[in-house]
Design a protein around this nucleic acid. Sequence first.
RNA 1: GCGCCCGUAGCUCAGCUGGAUAGAGCAUCGGCCUUCUAAGCCGAGGGUCCCAGGUUCGAGUCCUGGCGGGCGCGCCA
Length: 568
Amino acid sequence: MAQDRVREEIARVLSEMGVDGHPVRLERPNDPDHGDIATNVALTLAGKLQKQPRVIAEEIKQRLSLDESVVSKVEVAGPGFLNFHLSTLEVVSVVADIVRADKEFGRTNEGGGEKVMVEFVSANPTGPLHVGHGRQAALGDAIASLLEWTGWKVHREYYYNDAGGQMEQLAQSVWARYQQRLGHAEPVREGGYHGHYVTEIAARFHNAVGDLYEGIASKEALDSMRQFAVEIIRAEQDETLEGFRVWFDEYTLESTLHTDGRVRRTVEGLRDRGHVYEDGGATWLRTTEFGDQKDRVMLKSDGSATYFLPDVAYHMNKWERSFKRVINVQGADHHSTVDRVRAGVQALGLPEGYPEYVLHQMVRIEREGEEVKLSKRSGTDMTLGALMDEVGVDVVRYFFQMRKPEAQMVFDLDEALDRSEKNPLYKIQYAHARMCSIFAKAEIAPADVPSEGVDLGRLRDPAERDLVARLAEFPEVVQRAAGARAPHLLCDYLEQTAGAVNSWYHAGNPSRNPELAVLADDPDTRAARLLLARAVQIVLRNGLWVLGLNAPERMEREEDDEAAPVEA
RNA sequence: GCGCCCGUAGCUCAGCUGGAUAGAGCAUCGGCCUUCUAAGCCGAGGGUCCCAGGUUCGAGUCCUGGCGGGCGCGCCA
């Protein structure tokens, strides 16, 4: 690559000038006038060499020896930047590399095959998944996929909090609805679950067992109802996630951490290491030793565990399963657990900062500028399933991925329902479909677009050169997005690229500018542009795939005359 | 009160480890138009980057202090 050559040559020149070990950063200028590669070394060296940056830049420039077929021009500009202009052929030649790599283009190997776990969604089985879970599912899945594309062996995991007080609330709520169904005025307690789904579960339970537990609030009755409810809710959550195209390698149930003794052993371990004390009948962990704001109760005075204790046990378990790197995707409303869990595992000897967290903010749904309320327990909430049904899976996924996790976001239903290119997802998919339609027009299968013996030098239009340069960035974008756990960076890239593609395509409208058409008359130009179109299609497709989105070969057009009988 | 996140165009948001004239989409305005199938295309206007200091050759980006919004601060999860 030209980048490497430039880098090596600068290093050589610097050492010739008596400077060794100085970091050289290459960047891609935003302004095309600033060339294809730029560096600020002369600026960063100014202090060290006690000279004007521009003087240093000039000296470096004089000493550089670069093949003109690769670097066509070097300039000193602005306060002392060195700008390298690459030859068109050098820039444009990556088209062939892209097409050769095909489905592998964009994959790199930072991870070196090491294991990483991404835990996400992890909703309590107490009700349907809501839109916040949707954001988390879309983000978690994309982050996992980005890590796969950068060489990690990824394990997707889901943690079910199927023990603890919330489950008791659920059981009580079902019990109350069940009794109500039998004509008894039993209220759903405060803090219980009031959604319609609870009433439905109670009805199904009634159908299953009849009046067996009428007026009976025994442990057996409540256990039975809890088990029944959890089964139904889990099945529904699983179905929703499957529809959302999110799958997990493993599900861990909180209850198993209790039954297999891990929770007990965690307490013992913490006690042995002297991080535990008793106060007010409860057992406390000295989490402040590890940066928490205050100490936390881990065993209540009744002897039962607070929620974070099994969490600690769980993360020890992740470590013991040899996941030295774990990324937890969670809603920011749970961010107080971060310090607690880290303190707990650190107290047991794990490194500081384990596990890693991606905390995402809340989602606000709007229609016609008005918020669509989502209250989990009202029964009239906006569930993930409802959102998917209304706007489609690809759109929901993309909209959640296109915003950085740590910022609150507005999900605009009107924008999401827009079928035109104003909808950013469709803009990308249209661009992809357009390339496919060109191949169809040329009567050639995408995979059969000739890549040998093509004179890429025919791609001499500046727009084409820029487009190719952009395509070449794809692998770096994937790396950066993976490293930052930030899928929105890839969304941004795809959107920008699609914009450039669409402009290129429209500029070559045969009825106006036949000489700019991909399917130009001149066979050499046509072959070069077809190959570029193929490279475009590969990059857009791979990018969509990374995000778990479809790359359609044609966009379904709504035939609005279909169900509209014309009145005479 | 303390902690975390956010504050960039009318709106929704980008801005990679500080870099050269701060970007995109929507909306607005002005042209064009029916296609290599695509409710389309081209272009324009629009900004005290919340405020005030500081660090330095250079700050939207880093530091400090404010202001505004969200979330959290349970023997709930």
